[in-house]
């Protein structure tokens, strides 16, 4: 990889990484804004939803979704 083609890794989740998950936005109503990963409360399927999307599992139609545990580092002072 040459120096020119290198792209600095972006730490913030706000960055629009082009590849992952963006293309297969399964949004029914075509909601707006960033897509966030959720998990179905019944079948554990993972899905990405945007603002304004209907809240239901895209696989089984379940109506409770969980937000996934953050991938960011979570560090606490141990005392």
């Amino acid at each position: 990889m040459s120096r020119e083609t290198y792209e600095a890794p972006n730490t913030g989740s706000g960055s629009r990484a082009p590849a992952l998950g963006r293309g297969n936005a399964e949004s029914a109503l075509g909601g707006e804004g960033p897509a966030t990963q959720y998990k179905c409360g019944d079948c554990n399927a993972q899905m990405k939803l945007k603002r304004g999307d209907p809240i239901r599992c895209l696989d089984c139609g379940h109506r409770v979704l969980y937000k996934e545990r953050t991938k960011r580092m979570v560090q606490f002072e141990a005392r």
């Binding site: 109503l29 909601g31 603002r51 209907p54 809240i55 239901r56 139609g61 109506r63 409770v64």
Partner: peptide, 15 residues
């Protein structure tokens, strides 16, 4: 601990 997104029973309501 948990964040739960609650949809309507119609399955078509937004958050």
């Amino acid at each position: 601990e948990e964040v739960r997104l609650i949809g309507g029973e119609n399955g078509s309501d937004p958050l």
